[in-house]
Design a protein around this nucleic acid. Structure first.
Lengths: 333, 333
DNA sequence: CTGAAAGCGCTAACAT
DNA sequence: ATGTTAGCGCTTTCAG
């Protein structure tokens, strides 16, 4: 019992393969009657068109690739979720590839996707213009997310990392009234992290010019946040307010603070970045910078779909705004 | 500038297309010298083999599909992460399809994947034997995860939901010494939820035969856990111990308890199920049933890969054990 | 409205 | 060791 092909359907329905193709793709030019006969035959044979053969000739795979650095944590799950939702709505399949830790890996992952996808969504903090030129066919529709690559060949959707971090730092300093703020950074060289740190530094210069900028290292994981938190508490003078470059680190940090018996925000204030779903359910609930992660994914896919439909590349750069979300950890109502 | 095909490479390298194919697929039968000439030509033309054409003839896509009900929350992100990691290690691509809320959707999603994948990983609490027979070609390698379908056509990897829930309930009753336990269930009809509730009921019958079984509804989201928590607190007699059918609901529930000013576990104890990454970072840290989610994904993919390599279906049913993880919310050290 | 036939780009016999 | 050629299953002119 082999898989039925279009020929089998044609034979059973007593028509030519061309008619079967036309009927099943509802292109018209076939009598309603014949269509029905063909439908019946297809059903009877459990006929499923072979996508490989189809896309060989149509040059369309109806599949988009998503290249991500990792899949760990709620940020990425929300992002994929947004992408997947939008893709489904558009009738597109989603090929994901994550878990690569550098340009080597990213390049291999990208190559493996080429020819399988009609376009690509790329979120990779290491990817730059040169890399893209070397690894992408010039005509493959692409949307970059949170990318340093700007004003060039590609469609880019960024988050206002700098602005969001600036606003949160300002809030901590001016509204919540903390004299200074300590920043827990993400992985070195990570674009998001760099931009957020920049926003922090600008706000510090602006609103706490006397205070020293204070940055400790992290890597965007809960664990690194926990360690950073412990490190901060071990100082002879513990900070009064801490701003973590993402929510996962804030989660780890919060744990460290409460483990040490500290009251948050009375003894020490805390804020994060991303507004992952769980942020509002922490106790105290986490003040953070809201990013609408799923929205970002949805947006990127829509943008890609436009390129796909229009058969032309585009190259706009959009920046999605961020909003400071005040909950309880930051010490201002 | 159109995309280079194998013919172009052959022309430039001054060999036949067959040699190009052989050289690039390292099948031997070509002089090292010619291979080098071919490689050079391919590089020069930026030649990328067309996967559609290739899989049309090889009948292999090197892609596996993952059918999931949703992508919300850390459970699924961990699961995909495990799958993706294993797939990458095997040189397989991963086509994901989630966000379907019933058999209709699942069927459509499945059909869209057919012909694009060499095999499928299915985690869908609604899918049963009849559905699979109706929607899957009989010869497509498949691995079911957490599925009610047993002892039949398919490879199945289950989690010991019943055993885990039983063990946690026993712990709450006997070790932590709570006189009775209230259970927050997942979505009605969801297989995981049903099994977990079963384990709870069995343990109640065994270790607290006098106490009434007490089950409230939930839907596996933080929000539903929050509402269930509030509902519980609104009773004239509030429960002493609560067991949520998954961690996300426990998170919402914990929030409700602390919002009401209750001490956990002194005033009210709480436990979850799954051990999502964030569980240990809640305060108090969440006692839960550990599932090794990423491992489950990895396992399922490995199993599928075996079927792919062996060119034959298999039909074993494995059950992965769960371990009770005692942290601070359950009220026993 | 329908059918015949020409490929899409590639691999795998089968020749040489 | 290399070339020739016949398709894989489908869509799409082009005739009828």
């Amino acid at each position: 019992m082999k898989k039925a092909t279009i020929k089998d359907v044609a034979r059973v329905a007593q028509v030519s393969v061309a008619s079967v193709s036309r009927a099943l793709n509802r292109q018209g030019g076939v009598t309603a009657e014949t269509v029905e006969r063909i439908r019946a035959a297809a059903r009877q044979l459990r006929y499923i068109p072979d996508n490989a053969a189809r896309s060989l000739i149509t040059r369309r795979t109806h599949t988009v690739g998503a290249l991500l650095p990792d899949l760990y944590g709620e940020f990425f799950s929300e992002l994929i979720r947004g992408i997947d939702l939008a893709a489904r709505a558009r009738g597109l399949q989603l090929l994901v590839s994550s878990s690569h830790d550098g340009l080597e890996d990213a390049s291999a992952a990208m190559r493996a996707m080429l020819g399988r996808v009609d376009g690509m969504l790329i979120l990779s903090p290491w990817v730059d213009q040169a890399f893209l030129e070397a690894n992408l066919p010039g005509d493959l529709p692409t949307v970059l997310m949170n990318s340093p690559v700007e004003g060039g060949e590609h469609d880019v959707i960024n988050i206002d990392n700098r602005g969001g971090a600036h606003a949160m730092t300002e809030h901590l300093l001016r509204k919540a009234g903390h004299p200074t703020v300590t920043f827990i950074a993400g992985p070195a060289g990570n674009y998001d992290s760099v931009q957020r740190e920049l926003g922090y530094r600008q706000a510090m210069a602006e609103f706490a010019p006397k205070a020293a900028v204070d940055v400790v290292a992290g890597s965007f994981t809960e664990e690194s946040g926990y360690h950073a938190g412990r490190e901060l508490l071990a100082r002879k003078q513990r900070p009064r307010a801490v701003f973590a470059a993402n929510d996962m680190m804030a989660v780890g940090c919060l744990y460290a603070f409460k483990e040490a018996g500290l009251q948050v925000p009375q003894d020490i204030a805390l804020a994060g970045f991303d507004d992952i779903p769980i942020a509002r359910y922490l106790t105290p609930s986490l003040s953070t910078v809201s990013v609408h992660i799923a929205e970002l994914g949805r947006n990127a896919l829509e943008r890609l779909a436009v390129q796909l439909d229009g058969h032309e590349r585009s190259h706009t750069t959009d920046t999605l705004g961020c909003a400071v979300v005040i909950r309880h950890t930051c010490g201002a109502s």
